[in-house]
Design a protein around this nucleic acid. Structure first.
Length: 485
RNA sequence: GCCCCCAUCGUCUAGUGGACUAGGACGCAGCCCUUUCAAGGCUACGACCGGGGUUCGAAUCCCCGUGGGGGCACCA
């Protein structure tokens, strides 16, 4: 993959990276990260690090990259400028490109003129294309500022082949003489990517379909060099959840409002797992008929570029939640414990590993995101809970009757020789039977008394983990709260 | 405006001329399970954009509309 360090690493880039990775693993190829940093004006410090950090977190670390090296380096385009300059000159030499001395001011003027004439497509007017090559060479040698433009044929048409979309035919008269080498000596994407893809022996180019319009230019460049073409695949675009317009980085604020994000680097903090995120983005632009909850391994096995889909896909965060929850449920006790521990630590709670191992199976199927563990299990680690008085009063009963339940429970638990969920539940069931109360009423009071909340993991298993001493204290406290008036 | 791409349930998708009464998943609704919340199981609702062809036969192939998306930089 070849992102540019001009902003944050988002969903779309992650999906491209994933497909690149899957293809490489599937075919025994290399997954390469190349940084397209030729636009120094838009360079954002820290974004290179964010790209690599995000890839690592997702679990799809590149085989070759600026960080890991590789035999086709360097992997940062600004470190390869001589290569592009040589290649650009080669094209000029062969008559496929030409130096252009037009100033930005002249270009701007030409653009305005064309707009005034209401031409269909504003483009370079070809002034320097008409220059005599030896004359142009002289001006270059004299130190005059210039760019190099690709000499697009005026006649005929270009047939570019996309693996998903078939032949894409464009009449050359609609094409422009694009700049391939800028006046600062750095190449534009068009040249840099084509040269690097060739030099680095890239077999498959997977990129977003926003590149389709410049696709003819790219194949013309490759053909001008006489190189073999890679397999081109233009992936479907990600659309906003509404389906109206492509997912942009501006969407982040919108997504953030309901606990979502389009930036991979933010996913971890929101409680998402790499497995869930990967599974989610994999299924946008890739058609899998059934059994769509997959591990990375399974994705590798099932991946096939023939099953990629070309139509735009609206992102659906509810689906992310679904896949995240599904993958959390697949986690072992040890794995889940390790992943939720940081949330308690961050809250300053005294977490114990052994307790965490017992809690994991109790909350696993209740978590949508990992940080949900806090709402479900923080009461385990607190010294006391502070139940709301109204919550302590069972449905259909009054405070006094509810207090009776807590007292009775206190007695039952106190009398136990051994306190486990089995030994505690049996006598409580008997009590419910003989009391004329419902299980829901009795256990509801205990739940709020012991956990401080109306919703909790299974009651008796939870109490076993908390331990009799604390349970009794919390029951006692509940009675106090209920009898206070 | 011009060029390009796309078109199956609300969303992600399966489907490559007959096996389609169009399958799965998310979401939504109901039921079951149940001490809460989930998870799980079952059921319901729900789509081939329109019109012409081609063919014995079109969701599938072709054309034209329409709709949606993308692109028109010394950005990627």
């Amino acid at each position: 993959m070849a992102p540019s360090p001009t902003g944050r690493f988002h969903l779309g880039s992650a999906r491209t990276a994933l497909f690149d990775y899957l293809l490489a693993r599937k075919t025994g190829g290399q997954f390469i990260l190349r940084l397209e940093d030729t636009d120094r004006k838009r360079f954002v410090p820290g974004s290179e690090e964010e790209i690599m950090r995000s890839l690592d977190w997702l679990g799809i670390t590149p085989d070759e990259s600026p960080l890991h090296g590789g035999k086709f380096g360097p992997y940062r385009q600004t470190e390869r400028r001589e290569i592009y300059q040589a290649r650009a000159n080669e094209l000029v030499q062969k008559g496929f490109a030409y130096p252009c001395f037009c100033t930005p001011e002249r270009l701007e003027q030409s653009r305005k003129e064309q707009e005034a004439r209401k031409v269909d497509r504003v483009r370079y007017d070809g002034l320097c294309r008409a220059l005599d090559p030896s004359e142009a060479a002289k001006r270059v040698a004299s130190g005059e500022k210039y760019v190099i433009r690709f000499k697009m044929p005026h006649e005929g048409s270009t047939i570019a082949h996309d693996h998903l979309r078939g032949d894409i035919v464009t009449e050359n008269k609609f094409l422009d003489d694009n700049v391939i080498l800028k006046s600062d000596g750095l190449p534009t994407y068009h040249l840099a990517a084509m040269v690097d893809d060739h030099e680095m022996q890239i077999t498959h180019v997977l990129r977003g379909s926003e590149w389709l319009p410049s696709f003819p230019l790219h194949v013309n460049i490759v053909r001008a060099f006489g190189w073999d073409e890679p397999v081109w695949i233009h992936l479907s675009l990600f659309l906003k959840p509404s389906g109206k317009g492509k997912l942009s980085k501006r969407e982040s604020a919108e997504a953030m409002k309901d606990g979502h994000t389009v930036f991979v680097d933010d996913m971890k903090d929101l409680g998402y797992t790499p497995e869930g995120v990967l599974n989610w983005i994999a299924l946008m632009g890739w058609g899998v008929a059934e059994d769509d909850v997959m591990s990375l391994e399974e994705m590798i096995q099932r991946f096939n570029i023939d099953t990629l889909t070309p139509s735009p896909a609206a992102v659906n965060f509810q689906r992310l939640d679904h896949f995240n929850g599904a993958h959390i449920r697949l986690l072992s006790d040890a794995d889940l414990s390790a992943r939720i521990k940081p949330y308690f630590v961050a809250a300053g709670l005294p977490v114990e590993e052994e307790a965490l191992m017992k809690i994991a199976p109790l909350i696993r199927e209740r978590l949508v995101t990992l940080d949900d563990c806090f709402t479900f299990a923080s009461f385990f680690f607190k010294e006391d809970v502070s139940p709301n008085r109204d919550d302590l009063i069972a449905k259909g009963l009054d405070a006094q009757q509810s207090a009776e339940i807590a007292k009775k429970t206190y007695e039952v638990f106190s009398a136990l020789t051994d306190f486990s969920h089995q030994t505690a539940e049996a006598p409580m069931r008997e009590y419910v039977e003989g009391s004329g109360l419902s299980a829901s009423q009795v256990f509801g009071v205990i739940r709020v008394a012991v956990t401080g909340q109306k919703i909790s993991p299974p009651l008796f298993e939870s109490m076993e983990i908390i331990g009799r001493e604390k349970v009794l204290a919390r029951l006692q406290n509940a009675v106090t709260v209920l009898e206070r008036m």
